[in-house]
């Protein structure tokens, strides 16, 4: 058999493999996955730009989180690989999410909740960034475009939630889907790579009974309906940032 023929067969084979995988992706993507316990996922084809038709958000029911959200934080850590910097001290290590315990000074009523980037509609970090590296994507996800980040840390000064971290040392073997590097600022990006591929954020998958993920712009989404039903509070609502991450039970 000639070399050309071999190559042709190989190509066909690879195509077929690709086809199978593509079909899976398509099935996952084009049909809006019906609401499960954790909400809806994206149906956008990979070659179409995001639009502002959707605004991704989530509702975290603190009352249903038995661990205060520690499992969610762990899932985030595993997904993105943050927090293991060898040379940085505890205050310098990166934190995309953390569990905060809140106790009212007067009533002593206490609860715990996971705090990460709240994906504000009016994000202070985006306003202050000199280069536009700190950005809000059309679908409401706030992230750092590390290609433009000069590491000035002004966004960290501006964020009311201390959601952002600065990478204090050189990193190796990052996750291929979550680039992170020295001298830039980073934060929760709602697992943007997973959302684009029609999956739920890692933290949502880790706590499917307590978190609903979905489209805040769609009044018929499970998220919107639940929010309308049981409500969802913002941290520092007084700042009027209209956060995309809402909490029940705080």
């Amino acid at each position: 058999m000639s070399q050309n023929r071999v190559d042709e067969y190989r190509r066909k084979f690879v195509m077929a493999l690709g086809g199978t995988a593509a079909a899976v992706t398509v099935a996952q993507g084009f049909i809006l996955r019906e609401a499960n316990a954790a909400g809806e996922v994206s149906s956008r084809p990979l070659d179409k730009a995001v639009t502002s038709d959707k605004r991704w958000g989530m509702l975290i029911d603190v009352t249903k989180l038995t661990d205060g959200g520690a499992g969610m934080v762990e899932a985030c850590k595993k997904e993105h690989g943050w927090g293991n910097e060898a040379d940085s001290d505890e205050a310098q290590k990166t934190h995309w999410a953390r569990v905060v315990k809140v106790t009212d000074k007067l009533t002593k009523n206490s609860f715990s909740l996971p705090v990460m980037c709240q994906h504000c509609e009016q994000p202070p970090c985006v306003d202050v960034c000199p280069t536009g590296a700190s950005m809000k994507r059309a679908d409401g996800i706030v992230q750092v475009n590390k290609h433009l980040c000069i590491g000035c840390r002004y966004c960290m000064m501006a964020c009311p939630y201390k959601a952002r971290s600065f990478v204090h040392e050189a990193l190796h073997d990052q996750k291929p889907y979550s680039p992170r590097g020295m001298g830039t600022v980073e934060a929760c990006n709602m697992c943007i790579h997973r959302i684009d591929n029609g999956q739920l954020p890692a933290c949502v998958e880790a706590a499917p009974d307590a978190v609903i993920f979905g489209d805040l712009n769609d009044p018929n989404s499970t998220l919107s309906k639940t929010l309308k039903d049981i409500g969802g509070k913002q941290i520092r609502a007084d700042l009027n940032l209209n956060t995309g991450v809402r909490y029940h039970g705080i």
Partner: peptide, 11 residues
């Protein structure tokens, strides 16, 4: 983070 409340965390 929460006016009128004490907060604590590992961070």
């Amino acid at each position: 983070l929460f006016p009128g409340a004490e907060v604590s965390s590992g961070y």
